[in-house]
Design a binder for these strands. Structure first.
Length: 128
RNA sequence: GGCAGGGACUGUUCUAUCGCCGUGUGCCAUAGUGCGCAGGGAGGAAAGUCCGGGCAGCGCGAGCCACCAUGCUUCCUAACGGGAAGGGGCUGUGAGGGCAACCGAACGGCUACAGACAGCGCCGCAGAAAGAGAUACCGCCCACUAUGCUGCCUCGGCAGCAUAAGGCAAGGGUGAAAACGCGAGGUAAGAGCUCACGUCGUGUCCUGGCGACAGGCACGGGGGCAAGCCUCAUGGGCUGAAAGACCAUGUAUACCGGCAAGCCGCAAGGCAGCAGGCAGGCUCGCUUGCAUUGCCGGGGGGUAGGUUGAUAGAGACCGUCGGCGACGGCGGUAGUAGAUUGAUGAUAGAACACGACAGAACCCGGCUUAUAGGUCCCUGCUUUUU
RNA sequence: GCCGAUGUAACUCAGUUGGUAGAGUAGCUGAUUUGUAAUCAGCCUGUCGGGGGUUCGAGUCCCUUCAUCGGCU
């Protein structure tokens, strides 16, 4: 059981980001807009990027807060997704865009993240 | 004591667990985005990007025009449109002086405050007139010229009243502003027409002050607006770290460098043309180079990376000396965030005032704006006590 | 991070040298029509994004602030 969140688990390549937004599968699990796609040469089972739009949160402090909350929720719940991906021997890239206009609490976001993970795993299994 | 406003300082703390980014160090191992250990990790505004610099690139330097900015003085500063001290102006209370106009001690507040005697322009409506020593609506005056009436009367004049031409700008009226204000003289009535005082401006003048300026003396007659054009003085080249430098991978052709080819001369060199030429235009000087082709050499563009720029600085704190102060000199102390899709978080517990405004991205100095609570100071109002 | 532009009526926009803020669309009332649309006549709507300053007077000039939009790898 690893709760780490190292550089390899984050999506940094500009090229991959452009490809993800051009070709990735997209669905909404409120308060997030999720976009994901399967990649050939993964550095990690899943590379994720978290987005807090400037349009919805004017202050940098609020954007940082939303991003950190999201990251913590994802970090505590990612293991089940990793097991699934390793089982099928694939890797994905993933983008989480926060599309709510208000900041939610850590507890509420945890519930939302559970639902998001369930929906994501269901979609992955459906495409296989 | 309470309330409101303003200014200065401060800007939650501790423990555990799971994570993130650098630094040092040890182990495995000769590799790695590995595992340990130690220690560090957002602000007073990190913000707005409004100014000033450092730094880097663009062949260089000088000058003129254009453009932009600033604008009382002296000082501080690397520099500034910032700051300190001072001067002037406006203004509130207003001792007191003066017939009045007005001046004005003392205590406050505000102040982008060069030039309106270089020139141009504007001043709607209203008003006669908005800047030409112009003009006259109501009004004032009959001294001079003329006429009418009445009275006196030596029958030619005199006096009174009114009017025309004419004189005047005191008063009224308009307006934000009306051609200096006020008192006296003067006059037919009046007017800086004359005088005193006041106000404003000017001066190769005198005194004091580094200076802005103040106080005298002499002269003048004058509306306001320069955050309208403008004049004067001073300063400014432009572009910004997404600037720029380097490395590895890697290969078609752009690109760059060297050599050869205008004229004169044995040569040194000179002449002519073209181009680059502080990024708005022009001039001068210096400097570099030559269209095209051939040969030789280098390695650019594009793609995706890494290193650097890049964190020790006009720095902070303490003491002391100088200065009214901004600030400066000397001595000492501790030790410093550095990411690059972008690190400081989450959970649980404890304390209290129950945590405001708010998150570094090359670095500094200011300004402006936001700010809960706490401490101190100032101002106003109110209440209680003496 | 850097640079630039724009805020005026419910909407889209004008507003030269500072001098009573306008146009079109929309809305409302009336006329016309059996009724509606179209047409005609009339009416309504502004803290000129906010605050301060210059001026007798500011949408316009100056300072500051807020919001929105765009460009640069």
């Amino acid at each position: 059981m690893a709760f780490t969140f190292s550089k390899a688990e984050r999506l940094c390549s500009r090229k991959q980001i452009d490809r993800l937004y051009a070709e990735g599968h997209r669905f909404v699990a409120f308060p997030f807009s999720v976009q994901w796609m399967v990649v050939d040469t993964p550095t990690s089972p899943c590379q994720v990027m978290i987005v807090a739009p400037k349009r919805r949160f004017k202050h940098a402090v609020d954007r940082n807060h939303v991003r950190r909350l999201t990251r913590e929720c994802y970090r505590m719940r990612k293991q089940h997704l990793y097991d699934l991906l390793n089982e099928h021997g694939i890797g994905i890239v993933l983008s989480l865009v926060y599309i709510h206009n208000e900041i939610t609490s850590f507890e509420q976001m945890g519930h939302k993240m559970d639902k998001l993970m369930a929906a994501l795993e269901k979609e992955i299994l459906a495409t296989l």
